[in-house]
C-alpha cells in the first residue's frame, strides 16, 4: 500500500466556495440524486467516488448547470457559489460556466487545431490582449496538462487526430486555459498511462493553489493521493463526506467500508 500516501497535505480551513443543500435531480421519472448536502472548499481537492451509475457525473453537472442542456433533467435544492444561488434567475449560466470549468468524462476535442482548441476559451472571453499573450496561455496550459512536449511541433494539426489519452489531456488544457475559479474533472485520468496520470495529478495538486478542484474517480488510490476531502455516493445518495484520510482509514458508514475494501482491501 505504498501508493496510498494518504493526504499528508492538511485540509486548509479556508472558506467555502460552493455550498450545496438538499440537491435532488430527476431525469424524467428516474430519481438520480437524492438530497445531497456538500461543501466544496477553496484551495482543496474534493474527490467523488462511488460505483458506476450512482450519480457522480450528475452531481458534477449540477455545479455548473450543464444539466440545463438535458431537457429531461430537473434540479431542485440550492447550490451557492460564493454565497450566490447559481440557479437564481439573475445568474447567467454562461458566465457561471466560465467560472466553473469542466473536463468531461469522455474526451471531446473540437474539430479544430490543437492550438485553437486550447485558445477557444481565452478567445471567447477576451482573456488575452495580443497574439503573443494568447500563444503564451496556450503553451502554459498545454504544459500544465503534460501535453506540450508531444504536440509542440504540430500545434496546427487537428485535435481530433490525437490519441485518446492525448485528447483527454487536451481537454484538460482547454479547461485550464480559461482560468476558472472551480475546476470540475470527471474521470480525467481514465484513458491515461501511469506517467501521464502522475503528471495530471501533479497538475491537480498545483491547481488547488488557485482553484477549488472537484475530481470524480474510480481509482481509490488516486482519490487518496490527490484529494483532501472525499465524498462517497451510492445509488443517488451521498453516503459519507469527510476528510480523505478519515474516509479511507476509518469510514463511518458500512457501505463506504465495503466499497473501499472491495477495491483496495
Amino acid at each position: 500500500m505504498n501508493d496510498m500516501r494518504i493526504a499528508e497535505r492538511d485540509v486548509s480551513t479556508s472558506e467555502t466556495k460552493i455550498a450545496a443543500r438538499g440537491v435532488q435531480v430527476h431525469y424524467g421519472t428516474t430519481h438520480a440524486l437524492k438530497d445531497v448536502d456538500i461543501d466544496i472548499l477553496n484551495g482543496n481537492v474534493t474527490a467523488f467516488i462511488g460505483p458506476s451509475g450512482c450519480g457522480k457525473s450528475t452531481f458534477l453537472r449540477c455545479l455548473n448547470r450543464m444539466n440545463d442542456t438535458i431537457a429531461a433533467a430537473k434540479v431542485t435544492g440550492s447550490i451557492k457559489l460564493d454565497g450566490e444561488d447559481i440557479y437564481d434567475a439573475k445568474v447567467d449560466p454562461v458566465q457561471l460556466r466560465a467560472k466553473v470549468g469542466m473536463v468531461f468524462q469522455k474526451p471531446n476535442p473540437f474539430p479544430k487545431s490543437i492550438y485553437d482548441n486550447v485558445a477557444y476559451g481565452p478567445k471567447i472571453h477576451g482573456l488575452t490582449r495580443s497574439k503573443a499573450e494568447l500563444d503564451n496561455v496556450v503553451e502554459t496550459s498545454l504544459k500544465k496538462a503534460a501535453l506540450w512536449n508531444e504536440v509542440k511541433d504540430r500545434l496546427h494539426s487537428p485535435g481530433t487526430g490525437l490519441s485518446g489519452g492525448q485528447q483527454q489531456r487536451l481537454c484538460i488544457a482547454r479547461a485550464v486555459a480559461t482560468s476558472p475559479e472551480v475546476l470540475l474533472m470527471d474521470e480525467p485520468c481514465s484513458a491515461l498511462d501511469p506517467i501521464a496520470t502522475a503528471q495530471v495529478e501533479e497538475l491537480i495538486d498545483e491547481l488547488r493553489g488557485q482553484f477549488a478542484v472537484v475530481i470524480v474517480t474510480h481509482s481509490m488510490q488516486q482519490a487518496a493521493r490527490v484529494s483532501q476531502k472525499t465524498a462517497f455516493f451510492h445509488l443517488g445518495n451521498l453516503v459519507e463526506f469527510g476528510e480523505t484520510g478519515q474516509i479511507f482509514t476509518n469510514p463511518r458508514d458500512p457501505r463506504t467500508e465495503s466499497y473501499i475494501s472491495g477495491r483496495i482491501g
Binding site: T69, V94, R97, N108, C171, A175
Partner: peptide, 17 residues
C-alpha cells in the same frame, strides 16, 4: 455529437458561439 456542444458550453460559450 452532443459532447462537442457540452464541451463548448462548459467553457462558458453561448449557444450561438
Amino acid at each position: 455529437p452532443q459532447s462537442l456542444r457540452d464541451g463548448s458550453l462548459g467553457l462558458g460559450a453561448t449557444k450561438s458561439e
